[in-house]
């Protein structure tokens, strides 16, 4: 039963990440997504210290705020033209991440957060944390959080589909036609931050990036339209998370590790097929 829950949490996490992942790949922002998934940590810890409930929605808000803080600081530094964008990302996120790690080691070395689970996630823990109202058990809270995030991500992409495509493909024309690239950028970064937090339990800071980038990059190898790319990214996320779950059981390893490995395997297989000109979508 627990292992079915773990499987489902992994699956929902992978789907949630694959949706914004497609635009992260197209906008060449994998570095930024990595930075965000690290920077949400201090927000998670500080919000946890306030509400003392690891699955409270307030944690998501706190974490999304620290992810956005990182995007904003990066923007400030690279605007100064003193360093390039990727360098300013590199300046900001290790700072925020280390604040998070220091908070953990000071406050609660044996409580809810372990440095290890911060890095690679602890999916089993969240599979055990059920939503109980008036004595009725409604299953793991993660289901509801991840389900909401998937819904928000889908809505975001449906509502802003035309604007996202325009500003991603041709940002200059987008500005010229009167759209606000910066507004869209921050909205999108909010979506990425929320997704990074919701995925934290299942994947931790380091492996979230695999879920964001690899299924979408795999889909990008052969798809001809953005819609197809998103659909295929979700399909690859599903395949990788299910097979990754069984792989991790077989090797008795962290589930997130198994999923990340399978994301890579699926990528390599697809790449080979594309090189052999076997698929096109």
């Amino acid at each position: 039963m627990i292992s079915l829950m773990v499987l489902l949490i992994g699956l929902l996490t992978a789907i949630a990440c694959a949706i914004p992942g497609s635009y992260l790949v197209l906008r060449r922002m994998s570095m930024m997504s990595d930075a965000i998934s690290h920077s949400v940590l201090p927000g998670i810890i500080i919000a946890f210290l306030i509400v003392l409930d690891r699955s409270s929605p307030l944690i998501i808000i706190g974490a999304a705020l620290s992810g956005l803080l990182m995007v904003y600081l990066t923007e400030l530094i690279s605007r100064s033209k003193l360093v390039k964008t990727d360098a300013s990302i590199g300046l900001v996120f290790p700072g925020l991440f280390s604040i998070g790690v220091i908070l953990i080691s000071m406050q609660m070395s044996s409580v809810h957060f372990h440095e290890h689970s911060v890095l690679v996630g602890d999916i089993t823990l969240s599979a055990l944390n059920n939503l109980v109202i008036d004595g009725v058990d409604y299953g793991p809270k993660s289901f509801y959080i991840l389900g909401s995030v998937i819904l928000i991500n889908l809505l975001f992409i449906i509502i802003f589909f035309k604007e996202l495509n325009l500003t991603t493909f041709d940002p200059q024309l987008s500005e010229v036609l009167g759209f606000k690239n910066l507004t869209l950028h921050y909205l999108f970064m909010t979506i990425v931050s929320i997704t990074a937090v919701a995925s934290f339990d299942a994947a931790g800071s380091i492996l979230v990036i695999a879920l964001f980038i690899v299924p979408a990059a795999t889909a990008h190898l052969f798809t001809r339209t953005v819609i197809n790319m998103i659909i295929w990214a979700i399909i690859f996320a599903i395949i990788s998370s299910i097979s990754g779950f069984y792989l991790s059981i077989y090797f008795d390893a962290a589930v997130s590790g198994g999923i990340a490995v399978m994301c890579g395997v699926v990528f390599l297989i697809t790449l080979t097929l594309v090189k052999l000109k076997a698929i096109r979508a």
Binding site: L26, K162, N165, Q172, V176, L177, H220, T225, V226, M229
Partner: peptide, 29 residues
Amino acid sequence: YVPQRSAVDWDFPATVFDVVMMGTYGQLG
């Protein structure tokens, strides 16, 4: 406005029709 051809990423997953449609987005808002 027609930017320099090299200003955009031609690997973006879109067809000729999709790109031409973008010209209507300004009027649409």
